[in-house]
Amino acid sequence: MSLIDAVARLGRSAIDLVVGLGKAGLMLWGAIAHRPRLRKGTPLLIKQLYVIGVQSMVIIIVSGLFIGMVLALQGYNILVGFGTEESLGPMVALSLLRELGPVVTALLFAGRAGSALTAELGLMKSTEQLSSLEMMAIDPLRQIVAPRFWAGVISLPLLALMFTAVGIYGGHLVGVEWKGIDSGSFWSILQASVEWRQDIVNCMIKSLLFAIVVTWIALYRGYHVTPNPEGISRATTQTVVQSSLAVLALDFLLTAMMFGQ
């Protein structure tokens, strides 16, 4: 009996998952599948770029600096044992470009902007602002969801680039200014190992995909929130947990595809 219950529970959660994916897909489709409205859409997009992008900048830049510095310090301690401390440059740059830049930025973004998006949308739903838009014959998907989605998709890759650039300078700061690695070797070896196509383009592809996933989850959780305070707080937590897990899983897949061979 309990076995059948367990099977039924499994079945139910599978059905819920499929239904949820379907709803999320419909939401995204409804939000972005239409002609862009430049005159009305642009101010909304700019406002969201401010809320989502500009307001995440400080945390991203500070984290990037510290992560680059820590990476350089730890890397130096290991590399110096092999007498190859000049390889610190590529170590820091490649770790940041290939993994840490896109991934850590996406995780911080999920915590900073994703949770805020969910809470904002949840609040709009529970105070009936979304219903009220619908009754005014204005599609909330286009008015509310679409500008937030695009702002997230534009902001996160830019933030990841900033994070990576600042991180490399943080590594330079520790490696060159503090540990006394030759600045020229630092840059020359770094430049020789970083490839435009393999590293920078892949970094941008990764962060773009992470941006889509994190923003999408945050908006879906907010848009389909149970409209009460408990529902909003649960949805906010779910946004952070689910988007972080999704980013890490997706990162593994992408890394396997990009660097697996």
């Binding site: 740059a93 435009w196 920078i200």
Partner: peptide, 12 residues
């Protein structure tokens, strides 16, 4: 964002 992009490209 653009500046960061250029910095990265110039590193390469």
């Amino acid at each position: 964002g653009l500046a960061a992009f250029l910095v990265l490209v110039f590193n390469v």
